[in-house]
C-alpha cells in the first residue's frame, strides 16, 4: 500500500488486505539496510489471521522515498506519523535489529499508543563494529558482505534454507545492492548512537538467536533488565535473521505472544 507521510511517498505491505478499524494493528519494522520483505512469512500470517498488518519500508528503503531518517528517535516519530496518516490510534510492533530499537523507542515515547512490542535479534547498546561502520561510510560493498555474513548464523551458507530453493546469502546481498548510497551507513550510525533513556511498560517479547554474532543473546541483557514486563524466547538454530533462519519458530513465538 502506497501512502504519503510527512510529504513523502511511503509503502507498507498489508498482505493484500485493506485496513479494518475493527481489527488490531501490527506494525513490522525492519532492520538496517533491509525492507518489509524480511518479514514475508510472518507478516503474511498475521494479515490473514485477523490483524491489520503494516510491514513498513522505512524512508529510503524498499519502496519508501528517501532520504533515510538519521536517528532511532526520528524513525520512532516517523512511525507515529504513519499511524496518524492511516488513522490508527494504537498498534503493536514487531521490530528486527534496528527495528527493535525503534519499537522500544516508540513504546517509551508514546506508551498510550503502543500495546505490545516484539523485539527480534536485539542487543543494547547496539555498538557497530568499527570496520563495518567505516566500510558503510565509504559505500564500500564490503559492508554488504559484512552485513550478509555476520547477519546470519555461521552454518547458513552451507545449510539448507527453510524456504525451498532459496539461498539466504544471495537474497540478503541482492536486497542490500538495491540500497541508495549512504542508507546503510545512516542506519548503522543510528544504531550505534542510540541511547535508551525512557521506560517501557507494555508487554515485550525478546526473540533471540543463539548463534547470533551481531547481537549475541547476552547483549540483550541490559534491555531485558530495564523492561519489567518482558518474556524471552531463545531460538537454538538461528543467527541474526530469525525470520529467515527459523521462520516457523519465530512465527510460533509471535503467535503465542500476540494471542496471549
Amino acid at each position: 500500500m502506497d501512502f504519503v507521510v510527512e510529504g513523502r511517498k511511503a509503502f507498507a505491505y498489508t498482505a493484500a488486505h485493506a485496513l479494518d478499524a475493527k481489527q488490531p494493528t501490527l506494525v513490522f519494522v525492519h532492520g538496517a539496510g533491509l525492507d518489509h520483505s524480511v518479514f514475508g512469512l510472518q507478516s503474511r500470517y498475521f494479515g490473514y489471521h485477523g490483524w491489520n498488518v503494516l510491514a513498513l519500508d522505512l524512508p529510503g528503503h524498499g519502496r519508501s522515498a528517501g532520504p533515510p531518517v538519521a536517528s532511532v528517535g526520528g524513525m520512532a516519530d516517523w512511525i507515529f506519523s504513519v499511524l496518524d496518516s492511516l488513522k490508527v490510534a494504537k498498534a503493536s510492533l514487531v521490530g528486527h535489529s534496528m527495528g527493535s530499537l525503534i519499537s522500544v523507542e516508540c513504546a517509551a515515547r508514546r506508551p498510550a499508543r503502543v500495546e505490545r512490542i516484539a523485539l527480534l535479534a536485539v542487543g543494547y547498546p547496539m555498538k557497530v563494529n568499527e570496520a563495518f561502520l567505516d566500510a558503510a561510510r565509504r559505500n564500500d560493498p564490503a559492508a554488504y558482505d559484512m552485513e550478509t555474513i555476520w547477519g546470519h548464523a555461521a552454518q547458513v551458507p552451507l545449510g539448507g534454507d527453510p524456504s525451498p530453493g532459496m539461498w539466504m546469502y544471495g537474497d540478503a546481498l541482492a536486497r542490500l545492492r538495491r540500497l541508495a548510497p549512504g542508507v546503510l551507513y545512516s542506519d548503522l550510525k543510528a544504531c550505534n548512537d542510540y541511547r535508551f533513556e525512557g521506560n517501557v511498560s507494555c508487554p515485550a517479547l525478546f526473540v533471540l538467536g543463539k548463534r547470533d554474532v551481531m547481537t549475541p543473546p547476552r547483549t540483550a541483557a541490559e534491555l531485558q533488565g530495564r523492561i519489567p514486563n518482558a518474556k524471552s524466547v531463545l531460538l537454538a538454530p538461528s543467527g541474526h535473521a530469525p525470520m529467515a533462519e527459523a521462520p516457523d519458530a519465530t512465527l510460533d513465538a509471535l503467535i503465542a505472544f500476540f494471542r496471549a
Binding site: 514475508g40 512469512l41 503474511r44 539448507g160 524456504s163 525451498p164 521462520p247 516457523d248 512465527l251
Partner: peptide
C-alpha cells in the same frame, strides 16, 4: 498453502532433495 510458513506441500512445487540442488546452484 498460503505461504505463511516455509515447507513442502507437493513435489511438483518443491521437494527436499530437489531443494538442495536448487540452493546449491544458486550459491
Amino acid at each position: 498453502f498460503n505461504m505463511e510458513r516455509a515447507g513442502h506441500v507437493y513435489s511438483r512445487i518443491s521437494n527436499p532433495t530437489v531443494a538442495v540442488l536448487e540452493e546449491r546452484i544458486a550459491a
